[in-house]
């Protein structure tokens, strides 16, 4: 009796595996194998001109990682610059896009708003448009003699040559208050970059991309917030109103806590996405003021034929995102005790 049962179980398991096998196969071929291969390549000197598993490829151990992290050279300086750029990018984009998305969601969730579906579509539109196309438009708008500077001109403001301007905004601000020379203590270098350079803030060129990304991605996150908002129990608001809560208090003590899981999701997705930013950087050209690790990985691999270094960057980036995500979950638990 029990043997037939276990046979039946086995047959069911077999059928189960059979049914998931196409999906599994796809995952293995397109995900697992490339990742393992990339990990292998990150420990070799593969130049991309031959078979990565062939005899010409030398195992170099941690050499590529050393070039990026410890060896005092151009690769490390470039990588540090890319990390710096991306760090400021994340720091500016994630809070801004989350706040904007939440605000838009609350606006279009308003029952008394006329043409709600129009606004929902309008705000979502940048998200579904090709990022390449939007970036191209921005390239034209933010030329030195482009439309943005034209408008600034009406107000007598002489705008910078946005995308060619590599000055960090914190440096610009400091020079505005009279600090133009880096103070002595900032000369200490970390990974080949002085502290002064680390704290430059995003470059003016990067500010354009920050603005662009906040605008394009907030639509997607607005949609997530909107879905969550519609799940908030109406009774809570009624109860709040009876207790004499104003609209701000209702938002602060009812809406925001109910949105907590969504907020966490948006922050996490936002952070992962922003650490991987590539298209916009690729289009604005190989500018050290906007270069990010993802772009550097591409550049090292396909332009310099250093696929080992390129893959190593990818894995360092993966580790960084992992650590930051876990950290974020620690700081912002999904449930409040």
């Amino acid at each position: 009796m029990s043997s037939t049962r276990s046979q039946e179980n086995r047959r069911q398991a077999l059928a189960g595996w059979f049914f998931v096998s196409p999906a599994l196969l796809g995952l293995i071929i397109f995900l697992v194998v490339p990742i393992v291969l990339a990990l292998y390549v990150s420990f070799t000197n593969w130049d991309g001109l031959s078979n990565p598993l062939g005899g010409d490829v030398k195992w170099v151990g941690l050499h590529n990682y050393q070039q990026l992290l410890t060896h005092d050279g151009l690769t490390r300086t470039t990588f540090a610059g890319a990390l710096r750029n991306n760090f400021w990018f994340v720091l500016f984009v994630v809070p801004a896009q989350t706040a904007l998305a939440l605000w838009l969601a609350v606006l279009v969730n308003n029952k008394f708003l006329k043409g709600r579906s129009f606004f929902r579509t309008a705000f979502y539109f940048p998200s579904i448009t090709s990022s390449i196309a939007i970036t191209l438009v921005f390239l034209f708008l933010f030329q030195g003699g482009g439309a943005v500077n034209g408008i600034l001109n009406w107000f007598g403001i002489h705008g910078p040559n946005w995308l060619a301007d590599s000055r960090g905004v914190i440096h610009v601000w400091l020079s505005g208050v009279g600090i133009t020379k880096p103070p002595g203590w900032t000369q200490h270098t970390v990974m080949g970059q002085s502290l002064w350079d680390w704290f430059s803030g995003p470059s003016i060129a990067m500010m354009v991309i920050i603005f662009l990304v906040v605008w394009t991605t907030s639509g997607t996150f607005m949609l997530m917030f909107l879905a969550a908002l519609q799940n908030v129990n109406e009774d809570l608001y009624e109860a709040g109103e009876l207790d004499g809560a104003g609209s701000w208090q209702r938002f602060r003590y009812i809406t925001l806590p109910s949105l907590r899981p969504t907020l966490l999701l948006v922050l996490t997705l936002g952070m992962i996405g922003t650490w991987q930013v590539f298209d916009q950087i690729y289009l604005t050209g190989n500018n050290p003021a906007t270069r990010t690790p993802a772009y550097m990985s591409f550049d090292q691999s396909f332009q310099n034929n250093h696929f080992g270094v390129g893959s190593a960057i990818a894995f360092l980036l993966f580790a960084l995102i992992m650590v930051l995500t876990l950290l974020q979950r620690r700081i912002l638990p999904e449930e409040i005790d």
């Binding site: 130049d47 151009l74 300086t77 470039t78 550049d299 090292q300 310099n304 034929n305 250093h306």
Partner: peptide
């Protein structure tokens, strides 16, 4: 080989 990156910098 490798001068490309140096030149870009």
């Amino acid at each position: 080989p490798g001068f490309d990156a140096v030149q870009k910098d």
